[in-house]
Design a protein around this nucleic acid. Structure first.
Lengths: 155, 155
DNA sequence: GAAATTACCTGTACGATACAGCTATCTGGG
DNA sequence: CCCAGATAGCTGTATCGTACAGGTAATTTC
């Protein structure tokens, strides 16, 4: 193996390590913020509401596909959200089998509160960072996610 | 709010978004690689073996504290690993209550295989990236994790 | 040396998820 | 136009990772 290949290998190993660590820490953080604002919304509920916010009302299958989840999982999550009044189910006028899921104002408001709390948290954590570094992190994470997503969809 | 503050807010929001997305994609990837090498080791097993590898034999409490997990969780994970011959439990000579957990050669080898498979995966995904970008990503992720960890420990 | 603490284990519960199977509906080839 | 197959969503069931509460044994503290 050339020196270059070796360096590349090392870097990839570091990325692997850091991503694994981030997943663990992220989980722990989510759990740890138990009684706080975060707890208003469990994980899946948050991502569903978020997606409804940016992508608009849509049916269960579309949500499942977009979020890489099984349809049954989304069905249950959506049921819980409906019970709490955070989303509404309406029959799909164009397809009798379908149900269109839309976020309610209460749902969007709740989601925005959680989002704000999380953003604030990142603000505290990254207080010592330069704006450039924060920007670069956002950008590289975005590209990493694109790569991961592309790879997931390919199979 | 000044323009600068606003820009900062936007960046933090992006970071929040991307981290959330990464967690989802990471989960999906882990699940998706069902029949592959990854499956040889479920998530917690992998991190435990990894930690034993870098930090050496230690007792359950130390592992739990380091991995931000409840002691009972580690106990069970360790039991499963022991059943599979990947770790060994020995009584702590210095403390009759304690059990020292150490990775077996089989455990280390299995862990290394998973690690290699994951690293290879990152290599494929990030094939189009410059070495500089990969390096920067590793570095920024590392710093993000430090920040997250510091914040978790503070409370 | 008794009281408080600690280490680990076990029972139990919960949340998120997947897969298999069901029903209702839709769609395309004859 | 009709039926065979596909699709949308729901429900039953199983698994995994995790936490919390409670128990027992060993250790530390005063």
């Amino acid at each position: 193996m050339s020196d270059d290949d070796h360096a590349k290998e090392v870097t990839l190993g570091r990325i692997e390590t850091e991503v694994a660590l981030l997943m663990r820490l992220g989980e722990a953080t989510r759990r740890g913020t138990g009684t706080m604002e975060h707890r208003l919304l469990d994980r899946a509920a948050y991502v569903i509401l978020r997606h409804l916010d940016v992508a608009g009302p849509q049916n269960v299958s579309a949500l499942a596909a977009r979020l890489n989840l099984d349809g049954s999982t989304v069905t249950r999550q959506v049921s819980a959200l409906q019970r709490d009044g955070l989303i509404a189910r309406t029959p799909d006028p164009a397809d009798g089998r379908g149900t269109v899921i839309s976020a309610t104002p209460a749902g969007l408001q709740r989601m925005a509160a959680v989002q704000a709390a999380r953003t604030r948290l990142y603000g505290e954590m990254l207080a010592g960072w330069s704006e450039t570094d924060r920007d670069t992190l956002a950008e590289l994470l975005h590209r990493l996610n694109e790569a991961l997503d592309a790879r997931n969809r390919r199979r």
